[in-house]
């Protein structure tokens, strides 16, 4: 009896108490829109030409995490929930983190090394296609292998900078 009556106040407090006002929700909405437009900024040429790709990716992920936190805290009401929220969210986050960490060796190894067989059957590297077209006569395989020896970040960078010049025209 005492236990069952114990959960009464909690349960009702969850449902009958009004946590956020409409104004709060609308300001969260505005914040989310502004944050979305921030990450959309990275699409424009002026951003791509002045901000390194690594920085801009970190920025986008930071923006996404901020938006996610806003949604979880306010729209999903976790800010106002009792301590039970930790019971569910902490193990789930822990398991997700494990899943991601389990992939880290894969990411590291695949980005640093490629076997000879893999290079033979691999797609070509777009960044080097221009050279091929101009008739420099470089072997694709050789190009691709050279490309792999660069650090992945750099190669992505050059590739990314090549994109996104057109929309301005």
């Amino acid at each position: 009896m005492s236990e069952s009556s114990h959960d009464g106040p909690h349960g009702s407090s969850d449902h009958h108490e009004s946590h956020g006002s409409i104004g709060l929700y609308l300001s969260i909405f505005v914040a989310l829109c502004v944050l979305t437009s921030f990450s959309f900024l990275t699409y424009f040429p002026f951003w791509r030409s002045s901000v390194p790709v690594g920085v801009s990716r970190a920025f986008m992920m930071a923006v996404s995490c901020t938006k996610a936190m806003l949604v979880i805290m306010f729209f999903m009401h976790l800010k106002w929930e009792a301590n039970w929220k930790w019971v569910l969210t902490v193990p789930a986050s822990f398991m997700s983190a494990l899943l991601i960490f389990a992939l880290v060796p894969d990411v590291g190894l695949r980005m640093r090394h490629a076997s000879h067989d893999r290079m033979i059957y691999a797609a070509e590297v777009p960044a080097n296609e221009g050279a091929t077209l101009e008739g420099s006569g470089d072997d694709h395989l050789h190009d691709a292998q050279e490309h792999l020896q660069e650090t992945p970040g750099q190669s992505q960078e050059t590739h990314e900078h090549d994109e996104e010049v057109r929309p301005a025209a």
Binding site: L103, D106, V107, R110, M111, A114, R118, M119, A122, A123, E124, V125, P126, A144, H147, L148, P152, Q156, H159, E160, D162, E163, E164, R166
Partner: peptide, 15 residues
């Protein structure tokens, strides 16, 4: 993320 950043080539969005 593993497949994308481990890929030797990845198309740009407009490709």
């Amino acid at each position: 993320i593993v497949l994308r950043f481990g890929a030797i080539a990845w198309p740009s969005t407009h490709d």
